[in-house]
């Protein structure tokens, strides 16, 4: 029984991690990317907890009046607590950025956000968006500002 349940638990954790990573890389929706991050972090936290688990042991807390028993490894549990809080901070920050992006660009579509960001970045740098056919830096002068696409507001 034990021989199967360990790999099974690990598969569950690894599956969550894989689902999350797939979602982060393939999703094109900002909010879903954040959700995928949450799933991936849950998966990796489960993996950490499993790293210190013992079949024959109890939680690592001494109870008054109970004889000493084998206990599970307390270190991964502490690590997971730390990792969860770190994850919450990162997720909250990601959501504040999503709120602002939605306000500024009016969309949550990653491809669109990225395209408009590249135009803006290029405009801020004084150059052109990538993919321009002009000569590289230091070559001849670039066309006037009129040639730049106006960053949409």
């Amino acid at each position: 029984m034990d021989a199967y349940i360990g790999p099974l638990l690990f598969l569950g954790a690894a599956g969550l991690l894989a689902i999350g990573v797939v979602g982060m890389l393939l999703s094109n929706h900002l909010f879903r990317m954040v959700l995928a991050l949450v799933i991936a972090e849950a998966g990796v936290n489960l993996m950490l907890v499993l790293a210190g688990y013992r079949w024959d042991a109890v939680a690592p807390i001494l109870q008054p009046g109970v004889a000493a028993q084998p206990m599970v490894d307390p270190i991964p549990q502490a690590l997971v607590l730390t990792a969860i809080v770190i994850g919450v901070g990162v997720q909250a920050l990601a959501l504040t950025l999503v709120i602002r992006i939605r306000e500024a660009y009016g969309t949550l579509d990653m491809a669109e956000v990225r395209a408009r960001m590249e135009v803006d970045v290029a405009a801020a740098g004084g150059g052109e968006a990538t993919g321009s056919r002009e000569r590289p830096a230091g070559g001849r002068p670039l066309p006037g500002p009129g040639a730049l696409p106006e960053p949409p507001r």
Partner: peptide, 29 residues
């Protein structure tokens, strides 16, 4: 699975009460 090496963990369990006075080993860590 299920039988971790506990190289650092066992020492932590053994010293948790003496080193920190906490009954909860996770808090001690």
């Amino acid at each position: 699975f299920g039988e971790p090496p506990m190289r650092a963990g066992q020492g932590v369990l053994d010293q948790a009460v003496a080193g920190t006075g906490a009954a909860n080993a996770v808090s001690a860590v």
